[in-house]
Computed example of a mutant assay.
Amino acid sequence: MSLKPAVSKTDHAQGNLDADLVIVEYGDYQCPYCGAAYPVLKELMKEFGSQIKFVFRNFPLSEMHQYARPAALAAEAANLQGKFWEMHDAIYENQQDLNENFLMKLAEKLKLNIPQFEKDLESTELANKVDADFESGIVSGVNGTPSFFVNGKKFDGGAENLLELVRENVK
């Protein structure tokens, strides 16, 4: 399966934005497997961040994880204040504490404008962004989280396999 739509300016990306190697993760903030993948992906970016463009797309499995969607919206709201990756990281680093109340605490800790943050959480624009990410995952063949794509092709394996692949192929 290949990635649809292709990575664009509307995606959240970090690392080398002009890199030839583009890795996309479809993640759910409450998924324990995504939580376990997080430190591995951090390691990947620490070693190869200058050679990788890493993209995160929302894939909240709301039926199983009641806080996955609120967390995705919180990260999107933080993004409007330039703090997407800070919120993304903080949620994964404190995954066991995840609930709506805790998301507000993180917003305060990241020194976000709270009234603005609260207003943005309710915005249809952000809800649409999360939905668009989710739908792009469905059409790209994502059936669980985390799911990875390497240069637009679905990667069969977890974060550890991804790190191995990159270590073998990127010098």
Results as ranks from 00 to 15, higher is better:
60 P>Q: 10
2 S>M: 03
162 L>I: 00
26 Y>I: 11
55 V>I: 13
105 K>D: 12
124 T>V: 14
133 D>Q: 09
72 A>W: 09
143 N>C: 00
110 L>G: 04
86 E>G: 02
149 F>M: 04
87 M>G: 07
6 A>C: 00
79 N>D: 11
154 K>V: 03
93 E>T: 04
135 E>K: 14
83 K>V: 02
171 K>D: 10
132 A>M: 01
71 A>T: 10
171 K>R: 14
157 G>M: 10
57 R>L: 04
115 P>K: 07
27 G>F: 09
56 F>P: 06
152 G>D: 03
62 S>Y: 00
131 D>R: 13
142 V>H: 03
38 Y>K: 10
106 L>F: 13
141 G>E: 11
128 N>R: 12
74 A>S: 14
160 E>T: 13
126 L>C: 10
142 V>T: 05
92 Y>R: 11
136 S>V: 06
141 G>Y: 06
59 F>E: 03
57 R>N: 08
116 Q>A: 13
79 N>L: 00
13 A>F: 00
131 D>E: 13
150 V>N: 02
20 D>Y: 01
165 L>T: 03
65 H>P: 12
20 D>E: 14
141 G>N: 10
137 G>P: 09
102 F>S: 01
54 F>S: 04
98 L>N: 05
134 F>P: 00
59 F>I: 02
159 A>M: 06
156 D>P: 02
116 Q>Y: 06
144 G>C: 09
126 L>V: 09
4 K>N: 12
21 L>V: 14
98 L>A: 10
30 Q>T: 05
10 T>G: 02
64 M>I: 15
15 G>L: 02
25 E>S: 12
162 L>V: 01
144 G>Q: 12
151 N>C: 04
81 Q>A: 08
112 L>W: 03
123 S>H: 11
136 S>T: 05
170 V>N: 08
11 D>V: 03
133 D>Y: 09
134 F>Y: 15
146 P>W: 11
14 Q>R: 15
152 G>F: 01
14 Q>T: 08
140 S>E: 00
55 V>C: 09
23 I>D: 06
117 F>K: 09
140 S>G: 04
123 S>M: 07
10 T>E: 14
79 N>H: 13
169 N>Y: 01
62 S>V: 12
102 F>E: 04
109 K>F: 09
28 D>P: 10
24 V>A: 09
32 P>A: 12
28 D>I: 11
9 K>A: 15
170 V>R: 05
25 E>T: 10
78 A>T: 03
6 A>Q: 13
46 K>M: 08
7 V>T: 09
84 F>A: 03
72 A>C: 12
96 Q>S: 15
10 T>Y: 11
6 A>T: 04
26 Y>Q: 11
85 W>K: 05
106 L>D: 05
168 E>T: 05
49 G>P: 06
142 V>D: 03
131 D>M: 08
82 G>E: 04
166 V>W: 07
9 K>V: 13
122 E>L: 15
137 G>F: 02
130 V>S: 10
140 S>C: 03
96 Q>A: 15
70 P>Y: 12
149 F>Q: 01
116 Q>M: 11
99 N>R: 08
65 H>E: 08
77 A>S: 14
125 E>W: 00
1 M>W: 05
88 H>R: 09
